[in-house]
Design a protein around this nucleic acid. Structure first.
Lengths: 220, 220
DNA sequence: TAAAATTTTTAGACAAGTCTAAAAATATTT
DNA sequence: AAATATTTTTAGACTTGTCTAAAAATTTTA
């Protein structure tokens, strides 16, 4: 399929797609505006444009959802973004908190074969440095099961498999707490008052706020 | 130095810089329009804008030249472009005729350290796949001596060190004629009528037009 | 050097994407 | 269900980079 979309259009599609995946429902104008750091009126304009191009389904005052065409654009942009993140961390040795903004630019490079060659060079990785799954060439993507550390019971152990927030400040906090993908965490205690958690990580005990624990994907 | 330039501004600076290097004189509006594939009126607008920002020197009706600020932008864009070309050919195994348009996009990625890390990963190459010199981190660049195959005398031999034209059609022609960087060429004969040349390449004899021979940089 | 040709600039328009301010629709509260 | 609050859309404006058509300046030609 050959759309010819601007970076702005691709970014809106990514936003609408990912909010849609998270919530499962039609995506509100204000939600999109929040994610895109823009104004609701700008969102209305863009959604109308994407709707005219058959990339989103939109009913006035009722929010939007990507069509299958729109989804395929969004997924291929995600694929590009995540492969570039792998390249930046694995090949160029950036830290995982430095790559988001650069990948945000690289994902929009137009080329028939660039992303596939990159995929091959990186040896077809399944996850990016933040644990997000990388769609394959056909757009097939295995989503996280969305189990957050915050929902793990006291006494149970789990393994960190991803971060929901890729902001530099969050990732730097994790670096300091020596939390990275693959780390085993045991939940020692959950504070009733603010849901802060006491954790055991490699025989050290630390306390993290709810804000932290609800942004860490875990398994088991 | 921290300018914050659009891709269009960077492209105009590159064009004005490179025409200026080639000709040594002030660069005409029409020359820029030709190189940028746009209209003279658009060039006038952009040159005015770059002049307001102190990136080019412009006198009405008299053409433009980059200032030292403008030159440093142009050179760092060239550096980025050429390093990305190396990456595409050496790392991702693109053919040299496939990389120009992709590098044209990649050169505009904004990042403080991306290009330097790429340079390191590629082991600080001196030349890109078309033989163009790569400016170092400080913008120092060793220009070609501009000796073209067309100026080599009958009976003399030389080595191909670069191509002036990076178009896919020219590069494909060279591939077919098994002319690549480093190849030794002996000039057997120059036709008076059209300056076409008879060449010996690896004991095979071929004839090339003036159009070809004046687009090949050679040494010795 | 005056006329003709060319080059460059100006003037006004357009598309993309954004914004503010106000109007319209929907949702919530009482 | 009416009043109030919130969300969404519309209307009009601005910026960037482009264009066409026409005017102005420069260069070439005769």
């Amino acid at each position: 399929m050959k759309f010819n979309l601007s970076q702005a259009e691709e970014n809106y599609l990514k936003a609408i797609y990912s909010i849609g995946i998270d919530t499962g429902k039609s995506v509100n104008t204000n939600q999109i505006a929040l994610k895109m750091k823009t104004k609701a009126s700008s969102v209305t304009d863009m959604v109308k444009k994407l709707s005219d191009k058959g990339l989103v389904e939109h009913k006035k005052y009722k929010g939007a959802l990507v069509t299958s065409k729109g989804e395929s654009v969004a997924v291929s942009t995600l694929r590009s973004h995540r492969l570039w993140e792998c390249f930046l961390v694995d090949t160029l040795e950036f830290n995982w908190d430095e790559v988001h903004d650069i990948a945000e630019q690289l994902e929009h490079i137009k080329s028939d074969s660039l992303v596939d060659r990159l995929d091959q060079f990186l040896n077809f990785p399944s996850y990016d440095p933040h644990g997000d799954p990388i769609p394959d060439k056909n757009g097939v993507i295995k989503h996280h099961k969305n189990v957050m550390l915050s929902s793990v019971e006291v006494g149970a152990s789990c393994i960190v498999i991803g971060v929901k927030d890729s902001s530099s400040s969050f990732l730097k906090f994790l670096d300091n707490a020596s939390i990275c993908l693959g780390k085993k965490i045991k939940v020692l205690k959950v504070e009733d008052f603010d849901q802060s958690m006491q954790l055991e990580i490699e025989s050290k005990v630390i306390t993290v706020s709810h804000q932290i624990s609800k942004n860490l994907y875990v398994k088991k």
